[in-house]
Nucleic acid binder design. Structure first.
Lengths: 348, 348
DNA sequence: ATTGGCTTTGGTATCGATACCAAGCTTCTG
DNA sequence: CAGAAGCTTGGTATCGATACCAAAGCCAAT
């Protein structure tokens, strides 16, 4: 009786089903393993009849390629690590969604890391991600610890810094100038005739982009000879509640304020809702501007004037760059500016 | 002259820096590679002096362990794939955050997949994730294609179905009964004296949980002999705009409606904001209830009555189960119910 | 008919870690 | 003091794919 095939696997059905491997598929299709590999990674290199037989074998056996093995031997993985401060924030989840939407079909997987606005944790994540031999790494933000910067610079990976523009990019930088955008918004307020303008931010000691927006606003006010020191800053993260509290606090502290620029739409939205509750006329008593372009701004009364940030587009562009550079490991610096826009509505 | 060491690596510094491997660390520390491996994965198995030498060598060489190699040989990876419908939705990003917060420190990484509410895409993602030989897989939702269900059942992985309760769990099921929660909320409305109650949902043909909530609501109305056919359903995804539109549409279509139960807080929030804009008294003219417990409900006027869903806790619990089962590959079914709560505020 | 070039296919080494087994050393027990 | 037991350490096979090189088959051109 012929038992050769059965004997080749020590204990058949011992205690754990042996995983179906590419070898098994090859044997069943009557081809070499490498041909199976090619049929999967570059189908046109295999003739039609063989390809069909291989596909049948794969289906029959329920074969799933082992990524670890493939990536180990090819020395690169189709994995894209992305580090964002937090995922709960709509701004960052939009960026991730943009990236994800354009990479998933290409066989790439998103590896998600959250730094919680902590550069040390970002550093730890970068170190961990290096062990994945990814082709690219995406970090939201441009501020890194010394060690993190060194790791990113030394590596062969394509490094993409997202969302804000930086003077000295490590490699690829995709984003827009928060400073300029904030300045534009402040200019809008000045041109509308507002003269005593306050800025409200939250968590600015950790959220550098919010802090930069504050600077941009003050730049503009100074240039126009206006008071440029009315800044109200909260330690906590932005919430609707803080925005609601802030608008009252500003009007109490500086009663002659005629416009408030909030660091983001969450704060501004909370402020608008509070004004409506208290019957504070917007923009009659005080004008309100936000930053971000989140959906909440369309339903407030009045609708919120804001800066629409290209969140999804930034993620999308990052995906495009990753796909473009996948065969060109050469590092060359590149800055890609993605346009933002002012959305002037009734709150100013 | 002694050149043995140099010659061993063909072309030293050829065109690509050779990766630092565990071998290099071992050589530098003067130990075997396996000892380095142990020093990293289970430090207490290595004596203090050796451990110190190894740690120095790692630092000096900037060694980063190659995860692919490690996971290939150990036949398992410290990766947790999670499939959610979309990441932009605050509900799902909260779940992911809960999971992430409790796994990151343990050396696990989140692998994010989005199904876009499409069971076929979920199936493709599951197939792709199987190639990672993960120890566990997390899917948000309990509705799968036939093929997906088969894959999940056949695999050795711990399978965790999240967020809703299911009659026949594949393995672990963590969540709460949307039907019961919706019924509870409807009961609250009935007890408050509302008699003509409408339900508004969006995207219910794909979002089965929303549809289940609708059923729960109708259950209760029927039980109390009330009209149970006032359902307004939108094809699109939930937005504040749709909520705003819906409240007007309901009051126009069924003018005697005295309460509206929205499938989620986004819709309810939009409705509340619209009522405030139009001067529709809430709850005087019409009461409004939501579902979810999102922050927006705290800042509306009036504040929104809603069901607080245990989003973060569900993610947290999933992380706990993953850590618990990591050494017990035996499959046993388990249903973990995470409590929700009714938050009665001024809108009802 | 022969040569050269192209396409298709397969064998073998390799990626970089961990598992398993064995050996050396110390410590404890009868 | 012999031998068992426990701890630390190392050698070698192995995980499952891809890269590289070689061979075979086919067609066109000389």
């Amino acid at each position: 009786m012929p038992v050769s095939e059965e004997l080749s696997h020590s204990a058949p059905q011992s205690h754990e089903r042996r995983r179906v491997t590419m070898q098994d598929v090859a044997r069943r299709a009557g081809v070499g393993t490498i041909t199976v590999s090619r049929a999967l990674s570059d189908p046109q290199k295999v003739s039609a009849p063989l390809r069909a037989r291989i596909e049948d074998a794969i289906r029959d056996l329920g074969y799933v390629p082992n990524r670890m093995a493939g990536w180990l031997s090819s020395r690169r993985s189709r994995v894209v690590p992305i580090i964002v401060p937090v995922i709960q924030n709509a701004v960052f989840s939009d960026v991730v969604e943009g990236l994800n939407d354009h990479l998933l079909d290409q066989g790439y997987q998103i590896l998600l890391g959250t730094s919680n606005y902590d550069p040390r944790r970002e550093e730890a994540l970068i170190a961990a991600f290096l062990g994945w031999t990814p082709q690219s790494i995406v970090v939201l933000g441009t501020e890194h610890t010394e060690a993190a910067r060194r790791m990113l610079t030394d590596t062969e990976m394509t490094v993409i810094e997202l969302f804000e523009l930086v003077d000295a990019p490590i490699e690829i930088n995709i984003g827009f100038s928060h400073r300029q955008a904030a300045r534009d918004m402040a200019l809008h307020l000045v041109e509308r005739g507002y003269r005593t303008i306050a800025f409200v931010g939250a968590f600015m000691h950790r959220d550098r982009r919010a802090e930069i927006r504050c600077r941009g606003c003050m730049d503009c006010l100074r240039e126009h000879g206006l008071i440029a020191d009315r800044v109200l800053s909260y330690e906590e993260r932005s919430t609707l509640d803080i925005g609601a509290h802030a608008i009252c606090a500003v009007l109490e502290k500086w009663p002659d304020t005629d416009a408030v620029f909030f660091a983001n739409d969450v704060l501004a939205g909370g402020a608008l809702m509070e004004c409506q509750r208290r019957g504070i006329a917007v923009p009659g008593r005080v004008a309100i501007a936000g930053f971000g372009g989140l959906p909440i701004g369309t339903r407030t009364t009045p609708e919120l004037t804001t800066v629409v940030s290209p969140r999804y587009q930034v993620g999308e562009m990052a995906a495009r760059v990753i796909l473009e550079t996948k065969d060109a490991p050469r590092k060359k610096k590149r800055v890609i500016e993605v346009p933002y826009s002012l959305l002037i509505r009734q709150s100013t």
